[in-house]
Write a protein that binds this DNA or RNA. Sequence first.
DNA 1: TGAATAGTGTCTATAAGACAATATCCC
DNA 2: GGGATATTGTCTTATAGACACTATTCA
Lengths: 260, 260
Amino acid sequence: MLIGYMYHASKMARGKEQSEAEFLAEYDATVFERPSVAVDIVLLTTHEGSLRAPLLRRADHPFRDHWSLPGAFVGIEESLERAAARALAQKLGLEHVFLEQLFSFGDPRRDPRTRVISVSYYALVDHARLEPHLTTRADLELACVDVPWEGETGGAVELRSPEGGKLDVAFDHEDIVGMAVKRIRGKLDYTPIGFQLLPDEFTLRQLQGVHETVLGRPLNKDSFRRRMLASGLLEATGERQRDVGHRPAELYRFSKRSAV
Amino acid sequence: MLIGYMYHASKMARGKEQSEAEFLAEYDATVFERPSVAVDIVLLTTHEGSLRAPLLRRADHPFRDHWSLPGAFVGIEESLERAAARALAQKLGLEHVFLEQLFSFGDPRRDPRTRVISVSYYALVDHARLEPHLTTRADLELACVDVPWEGETGGAVELRSPEGGKLDVAFDHEDIVGMAVKRIRGKLDYTPIGFQLLPDEFTLRQLQGVHETVLGRPLNKDSFRRRMLASGLLEATGERQRDVGHRPAELYRFSKRSAV
DNA sequence: TGAATAGTGTCTATAAGACAATATCCC
DNA sequence: GGGATATTGTCTTATAGACACTATTCA
């Protein structure tokens, strides 16, 4: 059914002189057909030189046995951000990770069941924090993100199992992951999000590796170093690496003072 | 009513062996309470050195006589982008303007009537195209955007009538406009959106003026010139200004070829 | 001719890329 | 000592800001 150029119920009160309180008491919110609203989360991490994101195997129709992003329907009294955090906690057991809204996908046919608008989020986490939650679950795969474009061109990406096989992905979730990659590539240079993909203490080389993995291209070591140290976002811990088979690098941490 | 950690209806089919077609035929989309979804549009333009956005005076509760962004509820068979374009056409009479999704605002209490999630868009248009639609409407005001922060810090802005008085703004629409300003400030330098705020043919000085208005700070003439000409996005028309009381500047147009 | 802004040329400061030299750890 | 990577220093090149100068129109 197409409800094309509809007017909202509030128009019905026109003419009558009501107070706002009276208006709200009489307001009937059920007049128009409403879409469902869900959140879907692209949880990105880096591992062995590639970007990864956990996907869940769908047990039910539609897209049964296809892989989908962790998500949840938004509760009627729940904020979007809370719904996203809840989905991460329920589906992956993760809390307190960097989480930011990405884009809302609203094509009327994107879900064959009914109209579902997906407010997508992206999250960033150090692989070491994610790993304990990945074991012993056949319905969870840490997919490798295969980006077929350069820079911030954008578009859908391919998702592969760590063994290399292409995964069948449900809904428009390949577009959503593509949008997430495009977004963090754009933000990497001028916001401190690279740190979110590393443990609290890290070396400059590790940070460069993360940037290279996200951007999908090698970076110049010298200028990366200079830029990072000049940014004022890094704080030397005074510690160094141990047992590394070569000269140990200094450890840094993200200086939150500078984020103010 | 709080439907907290709900599960979606698809779970109910678990166990039974159905085909996807059977599943969809039986699917009941009305089980859970759903939010309303609306679009709100920040239509930005520049005029006399300030950023402006049209606001409509609300005739009905809630927020009667407050000023709000043009918007519409999303039809059940209508894409988000189409709903946004429709709102622009219906409320302001404008078609074929640059339009891009901004952010989704979903605080459960942002609308006192019922749960309304707003998928916001920003649009850009040359003031000359907007002006004909502004006349003879007391319920429409081209508000001046007063940005109390620098760069891309972000946050709510103040909206003033062209005469300078602060406007009472409905809902969270000051946050939405603030987000729009933050977004275009960020995109101005590396995407060709400045052109959207000018007529088809314009001088470099006019383009610089637009950039200065958007960014809220003066720019260096020489390097702005160099950057723009080096970007390859501009195409000289061969024409020049007329009747300007000083040396007429060359007219340029946005070269769409380079956008490929 | 003068006012006003357009457009050009040059110098300097800053940041990025390239490359070389030295430092420090483990084996 | 040898292997490996970290760290520092220097040179070159590209870009942005500053400033001076010339050009072109209308009044």
